[in-house]
Write a protein that binds this DNA or RNA. Structure first.
Lengths: 194, 194
DNA sequence: GACGACCTACCAACTGGAAGGTAGCTAGCT
DNA sequence: AGCTAGCTACCTTCCAGTTGGTAGGTCGTC
């Protein structure tokens, strides 16, 4: 499988980094062109419009996320361990600063001004992530390995919100450790053996 | 106390609404001019630059927040009630859609591309809010009216992150109720009488 | 007559994007 | 083997509209 055209991927990767830094309006074609080493209008050869670029970017991000979650699902049997692994993934991302924020979380914050096509993808990510977390919570409850205070759904939404908030705080404080400080208690509470 | 010049305030209020919708790069002078009913360059009469406008906007927002928190401090003795009131405030804001997001939370998400002067104000807000929440947690613990799992500081940071995440989820789902769904369990856990 | 509040008329730089051209590769036909 | 057609990947040139911002003028009020 030879990587025939890496340019389109380069553009997507670059755009992702820029979006993570400043959202949809935080970057321009010129920014991408500079980094990728291509002329600005050439980007249109790979992506018809900015909306198109960001939509496929988010769509691909969602695919990767889904793949990551099913990898967790495959490799880790324990629901508590799955949550732990999910948090560890983000903790690593934030620590090495490669992608210190969830693309969809950032875009969600500016949802009101997002092109509808992009907004749809972003909302879909939230539903998918919450759905996976809910299933993990449910399984954990059934197996008696997770201690839920409320319903699996509410617990999952709370977990997701806390993770997003933790990303934000880590960024605001400029301190990657803050993510762990905030998220570790989540696990402790859920996997408490009483 | 006659409101001598309301235009500057109108500009600030309008800019605040626009920032809440889409962040620093989500609005332009033209947008403000349209809403306020003024010509675009006239904004410069009130605010030397966009950075200046947003900086004073955030600064004023922080003042209002501080005033709000000390009002809570004044009127509500119970730490648990104080947290409840804080959440109720945001729940109302999100429900009536006047200001369904914290200005500083939104700006924090795009911190890397924010002008330094604005970034400083945003970081200061996070420190101030976390500091207040920490003091509430501490008092609640001392009085035996709040049940903390960890230190007051960690509990406060977790609370703040959850609130920000809840705002994000409410926005992503397009469902104001989600804020309450996520934040109510926070209070229940903290004020549990065991 | 000074000043605040606002205006019109500009500006350079940048925005995403359209148009059309070119170099190189490949497939199919003769 | 040679020719042609069509493809991808990029280029240059150009565009209308928008960005934040400047310069200088007008008008009403104290």
């Amino acid at each position: 499988m030879t990587n025939v055209s890496s340019t389109a991927d380069d553009i997507l990767a670059c755009a992702r980094t820029l979006i993570i830094a400043g959202g949809y309006n935080g970057f321009s074609y010129a920014d991408i062109a500079d980094v990728v080493g291509i002329r600005k209008p050439s980007i249109h050869h790979h992506f018809a419009s900015k909306v198109d670029l960001v939509r496929t970017l988010v769509s691909r991000y969602r695919e990767e996320a889904a793949a990551g979650l099913s990898a967790i699902e495959r490799n880790i049997p324990d629901p508590s361990g799955q949550l732990k692994n999910y948090l560890a993934y983000w903790e690593a991302c934030i620590k090495d600063a490669t992608a210190p924020f969830c693309v969809c979380a950032l875009l969600a914050s500016e949802l009101p001004i997002l092109p509808e096509e992009v907004a749809l993808e972003v909302r879909a990510h939230f539903r998918a992530l919450a759905s996976w977390l809910t299933s993990v919570m449910e399984r954990g409850k059934r197996q008696g390995r997770l201690q839920l205070a409320g319903t699996a759904r509410v617990e999952a939404e709370g977990f997701m919100a806390a993770v997003h908030g933790a990303m934000l705080s880590a960024r605001a404080y400029g301190d990657p450790k803050m993510f762990g400080v905030i998220t570790r208690p989540l696990l402790e509470r859920l996997s408490a053996t009483r």
